[in-house]
Structure formats: structure tokens, C-alpha cells
Write a protein that binds this DNA or RNA. Structure first.
Ligand SMILES: [Mn+2]
Ligand SMILES: [Mn+2]
Ligand SMILES: [Mn+2]
Ligand SMILES: [Mn+2]
Lengths: 225, 225
DNA sequence: GTACAAATTTAGGTATTCCTAACTTAATAA
DNA sequence: TTATTAAGTTAGGAATACCTAAATTTGTAC
């Protein structure tokens, strides 16, 4: 029902809440969507009038349950498209996000259901992100940890990466970061938080910021001790 | 480059020129796109300023060669999507057009090329319409005739239908009209131009208007005598 | 050739979504 | 607490794509 713009705002609010910072701020959403704070402030008030966002002036914003439903619907479309583009058409990790960013607004639920069926009802997308089901419910996800909060001297399995940008995805591909691969954490540099890992036999140093975009679990799926 | 609206206007002008009436009029485009004549008049002037349409006030409109290039690009996207939706996802003839009508504006040429490759570079879409290639050139098409201009007492092969609406497609499916099927033309009623055909062993009467949306060629591809 | 009707364009407005600049509120630091 | 700055909002305006109602142009019928 919402327009392309509204859908992108709602998704941005959802993603902010459910990853990292926690609170969605006017400035944060404006930056994420590359629009002015003024435009964001106006739009948030419109979304509030529509009952999709809880909002009090100067106090911050959060999705209503209806807004969250819409967010999950869009995430479902986005992630199913990314899955399709990679699994069926063979696009690369760095090519899918921008396509999905547009397709997510032009696809009926009917069509998304068909694609999901064609793909065999996957629970996670090619970045390891959970795909909401037909009823917009998220699958149970195993406990995962970012590479920043992990114990030194152990091996882990990469279970999710955040597709923040094409460039990041290209970088991941280049250094060998891919889903289900094993990484050994050698060291975390005390002075800047960089994480030194071993992957495919190569030793690689990843900045703290980028390490925060890589999530891992225990190789056998057990809890991290 | 053009917006969704502009793309749909350009496509409407192209389709009017290349099927039936010939000349694109303000009223005709307005009706086809379900907008006011005023909106159409304004938009045509804008498209003229953009160099996509040749236009002189009160005199009518036609696409420039650049406009035609854009039209073929959009037709290419539309038809490849329809092919994909039917061949790969198994949607029905009546379900694909509306989806393609939206997807055609949200798909990069890069992605369309990938889908085309996945489909094996088809030359015609599921309605028998030609698919422009990567360079926006139409394939050579065999001579075809509408069911209105065909000789009585002969058999033909259905080689193209115009997907004017979902309802028309459902009707075609219901009465057995499908690509590559054989029809025997029994009679054309003198008083209203209805065409009486035999298809799948059933005798069916089709109105003159609807017959104009069905195109056939000789069963072996020869010329119609 | 005029008068009328149909087709088309223009005038004046609305709704979206965005902008910059100005203003207001909240947070912080001395 | 108070000054300063950061964050957020409002004011005023632009671009797009529509609309209805009022011209205007064109073509046709007498
Ligand atoms: Mn993505
Ligand atoms: Mn998007
Ligand atoms: Mn179609
Ligand atoms: Mn369209």
C-alpha cells in the first residue's frame, strides 16, 4: 500500500532498530536514505498519521506493530529477490542488493510466494539474513556473534554478513569471507580493535567496523564458550 | 532514464503506432493509460522537450528514433519478464501482464540480459510478441494475419495474441486459444463480422473485435493463399 | 462559408516528495 | 545554571504527475 519512499523509510527504521544502534533518529534515517533531515522529519510525521510509526516530536520514533508488519513484508521481498538473483541467475554478492532495492517495491505478494516456492522455501538469504515467511514471521535463528565479540584462539563458522554496500561485498569476496566458511580468530589488536583472522589459510586483518558486519556461530552450531 | 510514467506513455505511443489504428492521438493515449487528456497533452509536450517524441500542437505525435529506442527497451523488459514468469515460475497467461507492467520499470538492462540468457535467448514471448534483442532490434517475424483477414475453409496456426487484459487472456484460455494451436476457420458472419472457428474439436464464435487480437500463420509457415 | 461538435490545449489547483534556510528544543560542558 | 552546540522541526519553495473546468483549434455538415 505505501509508496516506494514510504517503504524505504519504514525499512530503514526497522533496520536501525534491529541492528546496531537500537534507536532510530531523524539524522540517522536521513543519512541512511541520503535525504535531508527536514524530509525525514516530515515523512516520519506522515507515517505517524498513517499509524505505521509511533512518534512524538523531538522524542524519536519507532514502528507500530502495523509498521513492523510492513517492514517484514518488504524485507521478505528484498531477501527472496536476492536469493533468487544469486541462486538462479548467478549474480554475485555485490550485484544483488541494488537490484533487490528496486524490485522489492514492484513485486506482488502473489509473485513473491511463487518465487519462494521455486526456491524451495529458503529460511535465510545469501547473506545469512532471515527471510520472513508468508505470514511475515521470522524463522528461529541460531545464536550468532559479531567478529568483535568472539573469543581469541577459536574457529567459527561465518553465518551472516550485513550487505551495507557493493564495495563491502566485493571486499568480502576478495578476502574470502563467505557464508558457511570457517574462520580462525588469531588476535584482536588492542589499540584499534582490528580483528586478525585466518581464512582459506590466509591471515587477514579486518577493521573493527567491518568486523561488526560479520557474524559467526560455532562450527558445529553449539554455543560459544 | 525516464520515469515510470514517461516509460508508460512512450510504450503506449509505440503500441498505438505499431498495431491497429496507426496514429497516436491525445485521446487515444489518455484512454489507454486511464488518465485525462489534459495530463496526456502536458506529458507529450514534456516528452517532446526531451527529444523522445515529435510533436506539433493539435497535429499529433510520433516517437523520435530515440523515443523508439526507449520503447523497444521497455518492450524488451516487459516481454522477457512475461516469458520468465510463465516459463520458469509457471504463472498463467492472465497473471503475467500486470506483474510485468510494474517489473519493466524496476529492472536494469544488466539484469534483463541475465534473465534472457537464463531463458536461452527466446525470440518471442508467451503471447507470440517479438522480443527486442540486447541492441533493441526486433527479430524477423513471419507474416501473420489477424483472424479477421483470413480465408474461410482453411486451417491456420495461432502465432500471436495481443494481451489487452487479464479477462481477455482468461477467455482465450477458456476457449482453447493458445500459441501454436491449429484453428480451422469455418465462417465469418456477414452481419457482425464474428468469426466461427473450430479449435480442439469445438466450434466457437469469436466477435470481430476479439478476432482482431488473434493472429495466425499457415500451419507449415507458408504464405496464405 | 458558417456553425457546431469533437479534439486538444491551457489555466489553475492538488498531492507527493524532496530541498535550503530559519527557527526551536534538547543535551552538554563549564 | 547558563551558554553553546547539536538535533530536530517548520517555513517556503521546487519538480512531477495528476485533476477539472475553461479556452482554443480543427474538421464537418449544412
Ligand atoms: Mn540487500
Ligand atoms: Mn528499496
Ligand atoms: Mn504484457
Ligand atoms: Mn508499466
Amino acid at each position: 500500500m505505501p509508496t516506494v519512499s514510504k517503504e524505504d523509510y519504514i525499512k530503514a527504521i526497522y533496520n536501525t532498530k534491529n541492528s546496531g544502534n537500537g534507536t532510530a533518529t531523524t539524522s540517522g534515517i536521513a543519512e541512511k536514505l541520503d535525504v535531508s533531515k527536514a524530509a525525514t522529519s516530515e515523512m516520519v510525521q506522515k507515517l505517524s498519521d498513517l499509524g505505521l510509526v509511533d512518534y512524538e516530536k523531538y522524542k524519536g520514533m519507532s514502528l507500530t506493530s502495523e509498521g513492523e508488519r510492513v517492514a517484514l513484508q518488504i524485507l521478505r521481498r528484498h531477501r527472496i529477490w536476492e536469493m533468487f538473483l544469486i541462486e538462479v541467475l548467478g549474480l554475485s554478492w555485490s550485484e544483488v542488493h541494488d537490484e533487490a532495492e528496486r524490485l522489492e517495491h514492484s513485486t506482488s505478494d502473489f509473485l513473491i510466494d511463487k518465487i519462494e516456492e521455486f526456491l524451495g522455501f529458503p529460511k535465510f538469504d545469501p547473506h545469512g539474513s532471515p527471510i520472513p515467511n508468508k505470514n511475515f514471521e521470522l524463522p528461529d535463528a541460531p545464536l550468532i556473534y559479531s567478529l568483535n565479540e568472539v573469543s581469541i584462539g577459536f574457529s567459527y563458522k561465518i553465518s551472516r554478513v550485513l550487505d551495507k554496500s557493493n564495495e563491502l561485498m566485493k571486499y568480502f569476496t576478495k578476502i574470502g569471507v563467505a557464508l558457511h566458511k570457517e574462520v580462525f580468530v588469531k588476535e584482536i589488536l588492542s589499540f584499534d580493535g582490528s580483528v586478525v583472522i585466518q581464512i582459506d589459510g590466509n591471515e587477514i586483518t579486518i577493521s573493527q567496523k567491518t568486523a561488526g558486519y560479520i557474524f559467526v556461530c560455532m562450527p558445529e552450531g553449539g554455543a560459544i564458550g
